[in-house]
């Protein structure tokens, strides 16, 4: 377990470096081209989703395989609210947040009845159900999906570059906001409850922590945040279809691999995992299916031999910890 308190000089240096990094990234429109910005934006969005999934699985013990449900809801709400209600994209994003939270709050009481591992598949069924409902609404374009009209897009900014900068900054804000928000949350009383819950549910219950409630609000809160990020992603993509909005591969498989490889139950793990994921993609993506086979194999090997992922390994080996959150690692013991 890492010490929760930093020596203050290290801490100040860490804050300074992080601030410089964020400022440098915020200035990316000055030093990166259009493709570079897009790549960075994509990294931030996957990082955010990975951080959120890590909160669910790594801390609240909710191994969801159905996060694509809330990605789809966020994306579709953006498109349909701007098109049919004529609201601005920002209002549509807020609507998406509310809808995703409502959907999560509706399914959570049912899904939480499923024991441990069965929750995973249950959350997947919930996502499939929402997906099927969306394909059945003719106004949403069925399987073909829908496009965001130019008029709506211009609501953000008139010219294309400014628009892309704004979306870039929003994604950066989502990434950094989620990272430091999750950090603050995990070091707060609620976070301690979550951590206790994940490490020892019985003890957490005896401490008077309402487990059900802690799980419920984590699930609902993460759904809302996923929906917000998704709106930004599809604001950039400008097209959505049920297959892309509710893609298990893009929004859940990839994210789970990122977190597992980087280090589950570690905030740093999501960052490391995202970096590794993009590196691997850079070199292996043209291999097609082999690329996914490699990713899956790495994830399995990680789970068997280094259960706490790359970051957990580094932490144990060198005592590194950027964002300590007083969480005990899962046991390494084998039967």
């Amino acid at each position: 377990m890492s010490e929760p308190s930093h020596p203050s000089s290290d801490w100040r240096r860490f804050i300074a470096i992080s601030a410089l990094l964020v400022i440098g990234l915020a200035a990316a429109p000055l030093w990166a081209d259009r493709a570079g910005l897009r790549l960075l934006g994509e990294m931030y969005s996957l990082l955010t989703l990975a951080l959120l999934w890590n909160l669910l699985a790594g801390y609240a013990g909710l191994l969801s395989v159905g996060q694509q449900a809330f990605v789809g809801i966020g994306g579709y709400t953006l498109f349909s609210a701007t098109i049919f209600l004529g609201v601005s994209p920002y209002v549509a994003i807020l609507l998406g947040i509310v809808l995703a939270a409502l959907a999560a709050a509706l399914f959570a009481p049912l899904l939480f009845r499923l024991e441990g591992a069965y929750f995973a598949i249950g959350s997947w069924v919930a996502a499939e159900t929402i997906y099927l409902v969306f394909t059945m609404i003719p106004q949403l374009g069925g399987g073909a999906g829908m496009s965001l009209p130019a008029a709506v897009v211009r609501g953000i900014a008139e010219d294309r570059s400014t628009r892309e900068f704004i979306i870039y900054w929003l994604l950066l804000a989502a990434g950094t906001g989620t990272l430091f928000g999750a950090y603050a949350l995990l070091r707060s009383k609620v976070g301690l409850a979550l951590t206790a819950l994940r490490d020892n549910p019985t003890a957490a219950a005896s401490l008077g922590i309402d487990i059900w409630r802690a799980k419920f609000w984590t699930y609902v809160g993460v759904a809302a945040a996923v929906s917000a990020v998704s709106s930004l992603i599809f604001l950039q993509k400008l097209r959505i279809s049920p297959a892309s909005g509710f893609s298990l591969n893009d929004w859940t498989v990839t994210i789970i691999f990122i977190v597992v490889i980087g280090g589950i139950g570690r905030l740093e793990g999501a960052i490391v995992g995202t970096a590794v994921y993009f590196l691997l993609r850079e070199f292996l993506a043209n291999l097609g299916p082999v690329y996914m086979i490699v990713l899956g194999t790495i994830a399995i090997i990680t789970m068997i031999f280094a259960r706490r992922g790359i970051w957990g390994f580094l932490e144990a080996r060198f005592g590194w910890s950027l964002l300590p959150t007083t969480r005990l690692p899962p046991h390494e013991d084998k039967i």
Binding site: A117, A120, V260, M292, G296, T297, A299, I300, M303, D333
Partner: peptide, 22 residues
């Protein structure tokens, strides 16, 4: 063997992706 449902679940999840792509 240690009450943690995550590892076996994630390993079979990885297997699912490997089998599909293989």
């Amino acid at each position: 063997g240690d009450d943690d449902v995550l590892p076996p679940l994630l390993v079979t999840f990885g297997l699912a992706v490997i089998i599909q792509n293989a």
